[in-house]
């Protein structure tokens, strides 16, 4: 016991930790392990077959491809938004700053139907894209649009505090030494915010691959074309293919855990970078 916990005069440790562990076990750990244990009912071949059918593979391609593209767009524009919010003054800035978190707060189903209505052939935006031959709603592009929406705050909110913390002395020193603004940005500012940018990218990507609510309305959900993996899980569940659904869920979980690990490493990297500075 003495090596497990350092002495403290504050009360309640056993109660608080005991409750925490019990609650986590009942709500999170046991249910999650159920998914893994249920897949052991399948043989390896059955499992492998279930998670590699052409329809499943197509859903991976769409899910990961669209999530990656959305995270990339969010990395670029998230950085831009964070930069503008930290560095410049313009009317309505406070309101816009607050609204950046809208995708966190807005239920995904609402986002889903709003984006669908917007990009449908007769929608506010869709009507201008349709004549150009660009179909967004009910195509993979729609999936990308929805995932861009829900991933938007991540990069902004991870980069923003780091950008705020950059001391103006650093930039002044660079200017004194003859660097122009672009050089200062590329050589001084960008390396400083890079770990945060990567973290934000990974967070947006991780969120996007699991997303369901905002996507299913706009995707059209055509097998092999615009069907995301989470939807496929639900489809299998509705067909009472529990084993198939669980196998896919396990694939998703493993990927989530790997991403969680990557994100933790990125955050650790960022902290170390700022500690060294």
């Amino acid at each position: 016991m003495s090596t497990f916990k350092q002495h403290s005069i504050l009360p309640g440790f056993n109660l608080a930790l005991g409750f925490t562990l019990l609650y986590l076990s009942l709500i999170v750990l046991i249910p999650l392990s159920a998914a893994f244990i249920r897949t052991t009912e399948l043989t390896w071949e059955e499992f492998w077959f279930a998670v590699t059918t052409p329809r499943v593979l197509a859903s991976y391609r769409l899910t990961f491809g669209a999530a990656f593209a959305a995270a990339l767009v969010n990395a670029v524009f998230g950085l831009l938004v964070a930069w503008v919010l930290v560095r410049y003054r313009f009317p309505g800035k406070k309101l816009i700053d607050a609204l950046v978190d809208l995708p966190f707060a807005l239920p995904t189903a609402v986002a889903g139907i709003a984006l669908t209505a917007l990009y449908a052939g007769n929608g506010w935006i869709g009507q201008y894209l349709e004549p150009l031959g660009i179909k967004v709603a009910f195509t993979p592009i729609g999936v990308f649009v929805a995932l861009t929406f829900i991933g938007l705050p991540f990069v902004v909110r991870t980069v923003q505090p780091v950008l705020e913390d950059i001391e103006s002395e650093l930039e002044e020193a660079a200017a004194m030494l003859g660097a122009n603004r672009l050089q200062t940005f590329l050589r001084i500012i960008f390396p400083t915010i890079f770990p945060a940018l990567m973290t934000g990218f990974a967070l947006a990507f991780a969120r996007a691959i699991g997303e369901y609510g905002s996507v299913i309305f706009i995707a059209g959900n055509m097998p092999m074309v615009s069907e995301i993996t989470p939807l496929l899980i639900i489809t299998k569940l509705e067909q009472y293919d529990y084993a198939g659904a669980t196998a896919l869920a396990v694939v998703m979980l493993v990927i989530s855990f790997i991403l969680l690990l990557v994100i933790n490493l990125l955050q650790w990297w960022g902290r170390r970078r700022s500690a060294l500075a």
Binding site: V28, M252, L259
Partner: peptide, 27 residues
């Protein structure tokens, strides 16, 4: 308090954030 396994516990608490909502229901 200071105790062993603290950072693991913090990661476990964050776990639901990285699980797809669909999988959260499925389990």
């Amino acid at each position: 308090f200071e105790f062993r396994g603290k950072s693991l516990l913090i990661t476990l608490i964050d776990l639901p954030f990285s699980v797809s909502p669909v999988v959260s229901g499925l389990i």
